[in-house]
């Protein structure tokens, strides 16, 4: 089909219609609108820091440490908590999820208790954990661990329960023993579900570390938010929020990359 667009070019290859141009422009319109809104709101009221103010605060933050910790130090502090908790959650979560997903009796015995504890949001553990362990590094990691381990256990269990019967038949036809049935048949079947669980766990962990830091810490990006709030330094709050958003998004990208690495067969389709 040959079509002619606004500029009179023959669109033999691309078929660019006026509609396509509008679609192309729309995202810029909306982002422009967002920036304009930010500019207007911050110029009318003092309740929202302006763009220039925020940018200057960002530059200042790069130079001047808060609580003797430089900006990147706060980021690293948060990341360290997340990574340690996440690694522990992956090991414990997959082990426990496999136990209750593979053995029905263990599922009844441990699974019921787990199901009672599961609906308690990780943040609700903060008071109990701080009353026991204070406000050091370990209690924070423990809270993040609780937030991260639950989705991993749930996904591992669900992944093992939804292994297709036909693969188990193949396992039986080729005389796999129980161990091979689990490691060579069931676990690979469940891997995409487990990886999805780890992805959920990563974003949960990032959220929890933030809240835990806001509720009592001397370092970390969550601490920067509360610090800004306490000092009535709203540009700092906004810088911290943007940092949190960017790192959260980066963590998402990294987990997706890891997913492609772990499940190479998922790429072909």
């Amino acid at each position: 089909m040959v079509r002619t667009d606004k500029n009179g070019q023959k669109g033999e290859f691309k078929k660019t219609t006026p509609k396509d141009i509008v679609y192309f422009i729309l995202p810029f319109v909306s982002i422009g609108f967002l920036l304009l809104l930010w500019y207007r709101v911050s110029s009318i009221t003092s309740l929202f820091p302006g763009m220039v103010q925020t940018y200057e605060r960002f530059l200042l933050l790069l130079e001047k440490p808060i609580m003797r910790v430089p900006f990147y130090g706060h980021i690293l502090a948060s990341l360290k908590r997340v990574v340690i908790a996440l690694l522990a959650a992956i090991v414990v979560g997959i082990a426990f999820g496999t136990l209750i997903g593979w053995n029905k009796k263990c599922d009844s015995f441990f699974g019921t208790v787990f199901n009672f504890i599961r609906p308690i949001p990780p943040l609700a553990w903060i008071p109990l954990i701080t009353i026991t362990f204070g406000i050091g590094e370990f209690p924070k990691i423990l809270i993040v661990f609780i937030g991260a381990v639950i989705p991993i256990v749930l996904n591992t269990r669900a992944g093992l329960l939804s292994v297709e019967q036909i693969y188990l038949d193949v396992g039986q036809l080729f005389d796999a023993n129980r161990w091979q049935m689990l490691w060579e048949v069931a676990m690979p079947c469940a891997t995409p579900a487990i990886v999805a669980g780890i992805k959920t766990a990563t974003s949960a962990a990032w959220m929890v570390v933030l809240a835990a830091e806001m509720l009592g810490a001397k370092s970390g990006v969550g601490f920067l938010v509360t610090r800004g709030m306490d000092a009535n330094d709203m540009p700092l709050v906004l810088v911290a929020m943007i940092t949190i958003g960017v790192i959260g998004a980066l963590l998402g990208v990294i987990t997706s990359l890891i997913e492609r690495l772990i499940c190479p067969w998922m790429r072909i389709k």
Binding site: V170, F174, D175, A176, Q180, P188, T191, W265
Partner: peptide
């Protein structure tokens, strides 16, 4: 019912491998 996570050769050899 080939295992989607195994290559052709890995799928073919599962019998002897498990033995």
């Amino acid at each position: 019912a080939l295992m989607p996570w195994k290559t052709v050769i890995e799928n073919t050899e599962i019998g002897p491998k498990w033995k």
